[in-house]
């Protein structure tokens, strides 16, 4: 028996590294096509070396199989490149609720050479615990490629922030 549409099933699969949000909310599901031959899902990696891609593909296929869909294929595309702007509003809310400050708007590229930052980028990131906005970067690379480590001087707690790309 098939439960739900393929898009609903795929959209409900959670991210292996950010289990509080779904792949759809993360913006890595590009297309779900349901045809006579099966389901074709197109996903995109957050980073070139994202080690979670194999888990994500497997999780999608497993979810579709359990929901009663037959053949399922998961394709990967890398163009256009993923951007944190594709994270949905509900995804941002859930990240914040889990203590991970959601990304701000992705940097807009001006013409000419890409500018270099010799100090931490002056991004206004609100502390997900107390809401204080004047937080500081502790380390530009965190537990995964997409996160950095910050600190809130008001509540004195460190927290993670999803970097804008």
């Amino acid at each position: 028996m098939v439960t739900g549409t393929a898009a609903e099933v795929v959209g409900a699969v959670t991210d292996p590294e950010l289990p509080m949000i779904t792949l759809a909310e993360l913006g890595v599901i590009r297309e779900v096509r349901q045809g006579e031959g099966g389901v074709l899902v197109t996903i995109t990696p957050t980073y070139s070396g994202c080690p979670a891609m194999e888990s994500i593909r497997a999780d999608i296929r497993t979810a579709l199989r359990r929901a009663g869909f037959g053949r399922a294929e998961v394709r990967t595309v890398i163009a256009p490149p993923w951007t944190t702007d594709w994270i949905s509003e509900s995804g941002r809310r859930k990240l914040a609720e889990a203590g991970i400050a959601p990304p701000g708007a992705a940097p807009v590229r001006a013409t000419g050479p890409i500018p270099i930052s010799l100090s931490p980028r002056p991004t206004a990131v609100a502390c997900p615990r107390c809401g204080h906005t004047d937080t500081e970067t502790l380390a530009a690379f965190g537990a995964t490629a997409c996160r950095e480590l910050r600190r809130c001087p008001a509540c004195r707690e460190p927290f993670e922030h999803m970097r804008e790309i």
Binding site: Y47, S48, I78, A79, P80, I114, I165
Partner: peptide
């Protein structure tokens, strides 16, 4: 071009 566009961000 696609590999480069992804790589630039990184």
């Amino acid at each position: 071009a696609a590999i480069a566009a992804k790589g630039v961000k990184e």
